[in-house]
Amino acid sequence: MHTKTDLRELSYAEAIREAMDIAMAQDERVILMGEDIGVYGGAFGVTGDLIEKYGMDRVMDTPISELGGAGVAVGAAMTGLRPIFEFQFSDFATLGMEQIVNQAAKIRYMLGGAVSVPVVMRFPSGSGTGAAAQHSQSLEAWTAHVPGLKVVQPATPADAKGLLLAALEDPDPVMIYEHKILYKMKGHVPEGHYTTPIGKAAVMREGKDLTIVATAIMVHKALDAAETLATEGIDAEVIDLRTIRPMDRDTVLASVRKTGRLVCVYEAVKTLGVGAEVSAMVAESDAFDYLDAPIIRLGGAECPIPYNPELEKAVVPQVPDILEAARNLAKGRI
């Protein structure tokens, strides 16, 4: 048993790099592709010096064509490699959608299971970096809407590593949305190879008064809020969804049956986002009979992410928003 002081800490970006390093060392089929990931080390420094260790054949800079790069990655996966493709910003994946939606997600189905597409795609996403409307979006619901894809949103360094290694073992395309603000966040990361199961949420904090289901950076805001709520006598359970397709129905429903109150917190635009799916899943289930208040969604405003830093903060849920919603729910005010 490790005591807490023994625990090794890595940043979220380091944890991803370590996962890629372990996978590449263990399996020659694993290659990295993306814009500026080679010599430059990646726009957010995630790949770092892996090119030094594995060379240009396995760490490949691709031209400024997301459609082309993604297409090469999908083709490589079909022919037996295990490519990890990085979209420099998840916003640019809009240009690669044909390869993601029409090819990667469909090929196994359309070829009767003869070929699978074990590609892993990484999507640096989210706001908070002052990068404005075209570099700050949270578009995970786009790909989560497509059968044939798996979509994960790690919130901690340990899960960033574990989910990437799990994705490489998965025979089908896995989309990994990494929140850019989390890259520098440190946390305990186990050594060596391990996987975090895809499709399994994590109960980050147990509570009895209400359930907060959050994704990515919102998990940390929810945990912050839960600490404050605890001082007010409100005992919040915080669930990190981790995977949004396939969604961990059992964990969410069990929590709602226990607490009877649900807040969904996500950075993406509120309408038709992940929280809408979570809410509907609860409303359609037997957990409905346990609800003691309306479900609340806290999501991004219905507008592009502004450049102005104050406005950028204002358009996505913050800790005070979660506190207010949780208090209203717990005190039966809505």
Binding site: K270, P294, I296, G299, G300, E302, A325, R333, I334
Partner: peptide, 12 residues
């Protein structure tokens, strides 16, 4: 009330 992100109570 789709564009109301700050006050779910209001929509309800």
């Amino acid at each position: 009330d789709e564009d109301d992100t700050t006050s779910p109570e209001h929509a309800l």
